[in-house]
Simulated assay, not measured.
Amino acid sequence: MLSMQDVLDYCDLDRGEIEAIAEHEHLPLAIAAELSEVLLGTPEGVCQLHAMILENMQQALAAGDNQRVLELMETYEHLKRTHPLPSMH
């Protein structure tokens, strides 16, 4: 049986990014990890990942959860470095 860490180790995203997907889509972490791999497979999916984290930031900001905003900012910075938005020609 795979542990959650095994699942996360398999993914091309880090735990914070997968947690952000789970939060945005209201999914268990393991399902969000699977979804992350599907999304990374297309330029449109990468754009969706960026949008999810930005939307989570907006919600946290609206809720006054400044700590969560900071966490998501770090997560988004990592995503931008490792999976930048595709250039649309």
Rank of each mutant, 00 (worst) to 15 (best):
73 M>H: 08
77 E>H: 10
50 H>Y: 03
40 L>A: 04
10 Y>W: 11
86 P>G: 12
49 L>E: 07
13 L>G: 01
59 Q>P: 07
12 D>N: 11
6 D>M: 02
9 D>R: 00
47 C>E: 14
4 M>L: 14
43 P>G: 10
45 G>C: 04
53 I>F: 01
48 Q>P: 04
22 A>R: 01
72 L>A: 05
50 H>V: 06
16 G>P: 07
23 E>G: 04
80 K>D: 13
17 E>D: 03
86 P>N: 10
51 A>T: 08
12 D>Q: 08
17 E>G: 07
64 G>N: 11
30 A>Q: 09
41 G>Y: 04
69 V>E: 11
38 V>I: 14
38 V>Y: 06
32 A>H: 02
70 L>Q: 13
87 S>E: 15
57 M>E: 11
50 H>Q: 05
52 M>C: 05
57 M>V: 09
45 G>L: 05
43 P>Y: 03
14 D>A: 03
20 A>V: 01
38 V>D: 13
33 A>V: 04
46 V>Y: 01
74 E>C: 09
52 M>R: 00
55 E>R: 11
60 A>C: 10
54 L>C: 11
27 L>T: 10
84 P>Q: 08
84 P>I: 09
2 L>E: 15
22 A>L: 06
12 D>A: 08
20 A>F: 00
19 E>C: 06
42 T>P: 10
83 H>A: 14
22 A>S: 10
4 M>P: 03
49 L>M: 06
3 S>A: 07
15 R>I: 11
37 E>W: 04
74 E>A: 13
83 H>E: 11
37 E>N: 10
33 A>S: 07
34 E>I: 05
10 Y>E: 15
30 A>E: 15
52 M>D: 05
2 L>K: 05
43 P>W: 03
28 P>T: 09
